[in-house]
Design a protein around this nucleic acid. Structure first.
Length: 561
RNA sequence: UGCCUGAUGGUGUAAUUGGCAACACGUCUGACUCUGAAUCAGAAGAGUCCAGGUUCGACCCCUGGUCAGGCAACCA
């Protein structure tokens, strides 16, 4: 599995920071990153960018990258998600340092530090209702007001905090707050909450805790404990950075200190990129699961036939910056085609068949045509494709009254059958509704591929399958990822309004060349002129199912309209 | 009308201590081809949000605006 190195690529701003740190021998020259997902859903293409960034940086600078589960909110988390996240990262080809880490492993240490802050008068237990606290926090344009409990005696807070841990209070009855600055223009600094009471079983710590630390309190401290040097996260945490640093200041005891660096998350046009919404699709049964091939999740894309290399290339290509961006899905699709084009065997299949009868080809005769598996791969080999008197071609490849720029089959015109003969359309038959039912052609025996008379040129080449030899399979087509319109601008509306119903899933049957009968789950092919397909995981030899990964570029379709 | 970010061809990213804006995708030509794909060759496309200033010289530094995004969860 070779991943092409882009030696010449200029540094992104994070790489510049790292190189600067390296030059100054900051943190003894260590480079240690982390990818910190909350196990509350499956990873999607946006996470892939972050994974490639963090693990990629570690690889390029001879550093390390931890996988850390930010599991501080048991209400939303589950081991199913933990497992899927590990699988997806490994599939992308990255290796985390040692075993995965969990924020929940630090609960005791975090608790001890919290007691220390209380003792230093830097944290206090507040027992006001949530609404009141929120109200006192005020609005960004005006200072907040201090809680009446803000200056309660240290011993009182300590006692209350211990009783919180002991389970003496109900959810929401007490919280632990850091004493920072109620007048700060930064809302996150107005005495942020450090701990809340949650009588809720945790997927790892079970029932041993009923108080859980908040993200802001847990994250920086976790980075510190793991020796993280560069804590890369998305832009929405930028405003949290002063708090990240404030908490760190309370425990730092040496020169080492992790640094938070923010970058702009990925936005893909026509694509739902919100975990919350994806969860909704799964829960409402609008898709078959997180790995439904239509989902923009890593597992969905995998099932759809995307390769790790193409995703990594995509991540590399889109770059990293602090400016908000919307990447066109076309860039993603380009990346998959680019890779699949190099590794897939070319095969023939007909989605919407119409019968072609070669009138001058003997009945009951057949012969094997030899087709190159992959013209890009000299060692890709060849395979046989049976040819006979009755064939199927794509209904779209025939036109009764064709414009001059139509390079396919129409009355009186010649066309090559890929890997076989040149045929000429002599006649055709229609049913009472005007649909073409049969096309009659003659073939030129001298024009066989690779033969002496094969040099003759015709404008078009069609894919085909022999009617009597073809195998029947289920084919699922997907159009783009999800949305009909670009979601930008409708963020507050119900996104389902923008799902294109036709794009959800078109299941149809197709005629395939017999060689495809050997296809196993995950095998990828390029169906001539139809695009790239992958045999689905549910495929069995007697019931083949192919998912379309992405189509081929089609200039004829483009110019037609 | 608080604070924090950001603004470079259609899109995404570059531009070493200021030195006539580069790369990729897309677009358009042409070649080749037994996939209207791929490949190859070539072209067009921005003068860097605006207005001032500093400078021999500004995408880069300064001042003032404009526009866009973010921030007021006991989520992460």
């Amino acid at each position: 599995m070779e991943f092409p190195e882009n030696e010449k690529r200029p540094l992104n701003f994070i790489e510049s920071i790292i190189e600067e740190d390296l030059k100054n021998n900051k943190n003894e020259g260590r480079v240690h990153l982390r990818f910190p997902p909350e196990p509350n859903g499956y990873l999607h293409i946006g996470h892939a960018k972050s994974i490639c960034l963090n693990f990629g940086l570690a690889e390029n600078y001879n550093g390390l990258c931890n996988l850390r589960f930010d599991d501080t909110n048991p209400e939303k988390e589950d081991v199913e998600y933990v497992d899927s996240i590990k699988e997806d990262i490994e599939w992308l080809g990255f290796k985390w340092d040692k075993e995965p880490y969990y924020a929940s492993d630090y609960f005791e240490q975090l608790y001890q530090w919290a007691e220390m802050l209380i003792q230093q008068g830097k944290a206090y237990v507040d027992e006001q209702p949530q609404e009141l606290i929120s109200q006192q926090r005020g609005v960004p344009t005006r200072p907040g007001t201090e809680s009446p409990y803000r200056n309660r005696p240290v011993e009182e807070s300590l006692d209350l905090f211990r009783r919180m841990r002991a389970g003496e209070f109900k959810n929401g009855q007490m919280i632990l707050r850091a004493k920072v600055d109620m007048n700060s223009p930064n809302m996150h600094m107005r005495d942020p909450i450090m701990y809340r009471i949650l009588h809720q079983e945790h997927h790892r710590t079970g029932n041993s805790w009923c108080i859980y630390p908040m993200y802001d309190y847990a994250h920086g401290q976790s980075d510190y404990m793991e020796g993280i040097t560069h804590s890369v996260c998305t832009l929405e945490f930028e405003i949290h950075r002063p708090l990240y640093d404030w908490f760190l200041d309370q425990i730092i005891d040496g020169s080492y200190r992790p640094r938070q660096i923010e970058f702009a998350r990925l936005n893909l046009s026509y694509t739902v990129m919100s975990k919350r919404k994806l969860l909704e699709l799964v829960q409402k049964g609008l898709v078959t699961g997180w790995d439904d091939p239509r989902m923009p999740t890593i597992s969905g894309l995998r099932r759809r036939g995307y390769t790790p290399e193409s995703l990594r290339n995509f991540a590399d290509r889109i770059g990293v910056a602090k400016r908000d961006n919307v990447i066109d899905v076309g860039v993603l699709e380009f990346a998959v085609r680019e890779h699949l084009n190099k590794i897939t065997d070319r095969v023939m299949a007909v989605l919407n068949p119409v019968k072609v009868i070669i009138t001058n080809y003997p009945e009951n005769q057949s012969e094997n045509m030899v087709l190159t598996n992959n013209p890009e791969d000299p060692e890709g080999g060849v395979h046989d494709v049976p040819f006979s008197r009755e064939l199927y071609i794509e209904r779209e490849d025939f036109m009764e009254d064709a414009p001059k720029k139509f390079f396919r089959l129409s009355p009186g015109r010649e066309v090559r059958l890929k890997g076989a003969y040149i045929i000429k359309c002599e006649d055709f038959k229609k049913d009472e509704n005007g649909n073409i039912t049969e096309i009659y052609c003659t073939y030129d025996p001298e024009s066989k591929s690779g033969g002496a008379g094969s040099q003759r040129k015709v404008k078009g080449t069609l894919h085909w399958v022999s009617a009597n030899h073809a195998i029947d399979a289920e084919v699922r087509l997907y159009d783009r990822l999800f949305l009909d319109e670009d979601p930008a601008g409708h963020k507050d509306k119900d996104f389902k309004e923008f799902i294109n119903p036709d794009s959800l899933q078109v299941i149809t049957r197709a005629k395939l060349e017999p060689w495809l009968g050997k296809a196993g789950a995950g095998d990828k092919y390029q169906f001539q002129r139809l695009g790239y397909f992958v045999a689905d995981k549910s495929s069995k030899p007697e019931h083949l199912v192919f998912n379309r990964t992405v189509g081929l570029r089609d200039n004829w379709a483009k110019n037609k309209g």
